[in-house]
Nucleic acid binder design. Sequence first.
DNA 1: GTATCTGCAAATCCTTTGCAAGTCA
DNA 2: TGACTTGCAAAGGATTTGCAGATAC
Lengths: 140, 140
Amino acid sequence: MSHLEDIVSKLSELGYRLTPQRMMIVSAIEKSDDHISAEEIYAQVVAKYPHVNISTVYRSLELLKRLGLVTETDFGGGRLRYHPVGKGHHHHLVCQECGAIIALDESLLSSLKNALLREYKFSADLRHLAIFGRCVNCSK
Amino acid sequence: MSHLEDIVSKLSELGYRLTPQRMMIVSAIEKSDDHISAEEIYAQVVAKYPHVNISTVYRSLELLKRLGLVTETDFGGGRLRYHPVGKGHHHHLVCQECGAIIALDESLLSSLKNALLREYKFSADLRHLAIFGRCVNCSK
DNA sequence: GTATCTGCAAATCCTTTGCAAGTCA
DNA sequence: TGACTTGCAAAGGATTTGCAGATAC
């Protein structure tokens, strides 16, 4: 069973309606390799279904977020990005020069997470963490 | 010489005018223990000088940022925050439950910074990193 | 049939900008 | 004086909301 079906069946289980808009929005999020913004989802959906409104995209994201099916990450720049939880969360390095987003291996941060728990008894939520800086190309 | 005088003399050296608005804006940033937002600066300044406009705050921040006197940090939530560079950097653990802010030891992050540089050739800017999660009291 | 969803338009929040008037040096 | 600054109002982009009509179940 694909993640898409996962999300769709979950919605239906919980009594939410499977409208074409929702299906297309979920599908756009799933198809994306990367984290996707509301605007990008909207662009994809509107191409096949010109009548959708971007407020429907936002409302669907709000629902999926609330149900824990999608995570919302703030990479800065005043635009939120979305990612299906089923695809696993990673952490990101964001280049402030060129905007590149680099996926970060879990292990590097898990040691940080453990250290924070051990030394500060602080349970860090690193799911949405984005670390800003400069990538290889831009720091030359 | 205080940081405030530092900034003021720098502005004047460079030929920028020392208007009362600028003085009050710089002073508000300096007085703040924490990172301060444009809105908060505005609120402080307007209390003493009701005529200021928030666009002046933004323009001053833009200037101070450009001159490298103030850093701008995006802690998420669609609001940028400012801090004088002279006051040094902080790392913070922010409790999402009770709002507590815990100062974080430099050493924990310097090893992360090194690892990122070594393994990703990514030069991380951790000067104003905020890590979200749950503090001791709230994670019980 | 009916409660849930949607489209639309207008509102909100944070930030930026154009322009004419004001002011620091 | 004259270039730099400001205030004002309006624009900007991202997101949210109120409401009446549409639709999945």
